[in-house]
Design a protein around this nucleic acid. Sequence first.
DNA 1: GTTAGCATGTAAGGAGTTACATGATTTT
DNA 2: AAAATCATGTAACTCCTTACATGCTAAC
Lengths: 193, 193
Amino acid sequence: MRKSSAVELAILGLLQECPLHGYELRKRLSTLLGALRAISYGALYPALKQLSKAGYISETGNISAPGPALSTKRARITYSLTDSGKQYLADLLADSGPETWDDEGFGVRLAFFSTTESEVRRRILEGRRSRLAERRATLRESVAATRERIDRYTIELQRHGLDGVENELRWIDELIAAESRSNTQVKNLKGIS
Amino acid sequence: MRKSSAVELAILGLLQECPLHGYELRKRLSTLLGALRAISYGALYPALKQLSKAGYISETGNISAPGPALSTKRARITYSLTDSGKQYLADLLADSGPETWDDEGFGVRLAFFSTTESEVRRRILEGRRSRLAERRATLRESVAATRERIDRYTIELQRHGLDGVENELRWIDELIAAESRSNTQVKNLKGIS
DNA sequence: GTTAGCATGTAAGGAGTTACATGATTTT
DNA sequence: AAAATCATGTAACTCCTTACATGCTAAC
């Protein structure tokens, strides 16, 4: 079983909420992941086929309402998660390895954090945090190294990159703090009961 | 002549300053473009071969110092811009079409803004600005549309994405303002003379 | 002497985009 | 009736990553 791409994970995650057809799926992927990714049909449909072949999702023509048997609409293919797919998705979301720390892997997983165990959430957030801290260190070094250069624009570009990383670090810290708070609350509740 | 990728542009831009060999080139690309891109050798060397074949750069074994004829070091291949390459680079940098507004295309071009005409700089900055403004509009919409959702994490992800875009917009505005200032100065100087 | 870094490359393959092809439905 | 948008797909192609292959040089 090859490691699943972020796109597949996103598809499975969306289908977890409700069955959808491809076109709708694509729109939701775009808004869900925002600037992160705008997938094309040439990538989406093959991915759906492949997930279907693997048994993680099932296709059904939309025999939706019990009204007029064959609706006038062109047969839309609605995809839903199978039991096997639910299990697979759960496994993917239970993961907190290196692939969950890069920009895309992290973004997709965060989007489905509600379905992720609190402990795994914490590990993913910490992993992402140290990945970002590393990147910040590298960028600081290179900003320092380029200090003598007179080129305004090179400096601007690097400074902006560093700003972005620092910004994201603050954000992650907030998320981690919020996570701790809700953990404490849970512990308190447990203590009381 | 196929349209050149951002990587090729970056290579040409770096070679404009001084001749370099592949290994060094890769390090500089990484620091120059920061988080934007970390190119692998599997991409770099073929790109160099291709640029060489096109006549934009020339390869020379490092027969550097006039000391001991064959240095002990393994023959490093030093690449330098040819006249044709200089022309090509100038053409690429004089461009301000849509390909100069996306994340990567913009980043690379900004890095070499010092060698870009002030008018082209302005057009690229404006183009980038409106591209970002569009993205902001889309994100705002989707944040608004997702408002009723209770999912904290989906909201956080989208809000963070929006923050990032707004941040970059402010940065671009600063750059544009700085650009206008230096233009005004130039005009004043011209007025005086 | 062995590890780490310098230095150049190739082959296989993954992941996706673009452009095309088709047709239904809704809106103007 | 034209235009937009819904809806599904395929084929060719691009670009890049990973893994491998090779060997030198400096430092410890």
